[in-house]
Simulated assay, not measured.
Amino acid sequence: MPRILQLTPFVLCSSLSRQIAFYCDRLGFACGFTQDNYAFLRLGPVAIRLLECPPRADGLPLGHEQSFYIDVEDIDNLYESLRPKLEDLPEGRVRAPFDQAYQQREFHVLDEDGTLVFFGEGIR
């Protein structure tokens, strides 16, 4: 049977350069490739594909109904390491670590186009 390597979500964006800067400067991703309206970013074993698109016809942000989850270890230390780069985001874009009823500790970040990025770790 063929081996599945990873899931790499497409994240829609209105400005490729602005989203690359957000994911790289604030969340620690590295940009591996860009061309026209496309970029490939990686953070350790996690990758995303940014795709610059025209605005939605309904006027909602491109990421309005998008989200993805990054499973991590040592979530509180990860959050503390990212916090200085997240503190100046507008209110409501970052939710500090908290415990979920489904036994995950998470923090959330909204990207430049409204995609919700979950970081989470199982509660032991």
Rank of each mutant, 00 (worst) to 15 (best):
Y102W: 11
L82G: 08
Q104V: 11
E87S: 02
Y23A: 02
S67E: 10
I70V: 15
E65C: 11
H64Y: 12
R42Q: 10
R124E: 13
P90G: 08
F22P: 01
E121S: 10
L7K: 05
G114D: 02
L27Y: 09
Y23M: 13
Y23F: 13
Q104Y: 08
I123W: 05
I4L: 15
E91K: 09
G120M: 04
A39S: 04
L16M: 04
P90I: 10
V72E: 00
I75H: 01
P2D: 13
A96N: 13
R26W: 07
L41F: 04
L51C: 10
P54D: 12
I20Y: 06
G44D: 04
T8I: 15
L50G: 03
D111Q: 03
P54H: 11
P61K: 14
E52K: 07
A96R: 11
L82F: 05
R105W: 00
G63K: 08
F118P: 03
Y69A: 00
L89C: 02
R56A: 12
C24E: 01
R18Y: 07
M1H: 10
F29C: 00
D76V: 12
D113Y: 06
Q104G: 01
A21K: 12
N77E: 12
L116M: 08
I48G: 02
Q104T: 09
L50H: 02
I75C: 11
H108F: 04
S81Q: 14
R56T: 00
V46Q: 06
I20D: 00
Y23T: 08
V117G: 01
L51T: 05
R49K: 13
I123C: 09
A57Q: 14
S81W: 07
V72P: 05
L12G: 09
C13I: 08
F98Y: 15
F22G: 00
C13F: 01
F10I: 15
Q35T: 15
S17W: 10
S14L: 03
H108P: 06
E121C: 04
Y69S: 04
Y38G: 03
D74V: 07
G120V: 09
L7H: 10
E112I: 12
C13W: 01
L27S: 01
Y102N: 02
R95C: 12
